[in-house]
Every structure is written in C-alpha cells, then in structure tokens.
Amino acid sequence: MALDVMIVDDSAAIRKILHRVLVQAEVPLGQVHEACDGKDALEKLKSAKVGLILSDINMPNMDGIELLNRLKTDENFKSVPIVMVTTEGSQAKVLQALELGAAGYVRKPFTAEQIQEKLAGII
C-alpha cells in the first residue's frame, strides 16, 4: 500500500534531498506533500492524509515542536509517525520532541542510510 508523506522544512534544498532519499529507500511511496513551516503543514494537512511526517524543528512562523504538539493532541493525526530531521541538536529540544511523541530524530547533516535506517524501524 502506497505511503503518503509530508516533508516539513523551510529549506527547499532539504525538502528535495529528503524526497530523493525516500525514493532511494524504496519506500512504497504515494504522494509526497511539502510544507515550508508548521503553519503551512497544518494548513495542507486539512486536505492531505499522510502516513508519515518528516519535520525540521527550527522554522519560522511555527516550529517543529509546536507542530508536533498540535498533531499529537489531534485525534486525526496522533497515530501518524513524525520523525524530526534537524540541525537542532540540543538535548533539551530532542528530549522535548521525544516526550511529545516524535517517532525518531535524525540530525543534519545526515546520510541517506541514516534516514533509511530510521524509517525502517517506523514504517
């Protein structure tokens, strides 16, 4: 069954790289949605149903922690795995994300293998 994915990052370069990594990982990929921040993601999720979200933490307008918090307290999205892919490496932020229900955390810069390994344990 095809997996629809949302990639949330304010960098178009990172969105493009993650899209490519998902294709390389031979994930049974359906539609890939992109959002440039948490606010944009919430807006697009009103009409898009996804089975996986990859999200940055540090973004303008609404950061990844707030997005995670909103989605994990929403009945429609709380079971969707959310993996944080971010430069943010502070212990406090990582712990906060995991406590809020993030399915995993990958620090930038990353290799395709690191993303694939993380996803293998989730999907």
Partner: peptide, 13 residues
C-alpha cells in the same frame, strides 16, 4: 537555497 542550508548545518552544529 543550498548555500543557506550549508551555512545552517555547519553553524548550527
């Protein structure tokens, strides 16, 4: 955009 991300990853780390 790529150069911005290069700077973000290096300085962020």
């Amino acid at each position: 955009d790529a150069m911005a991300e290069v700077a973000n990853m290096i300085i962020g780390n």
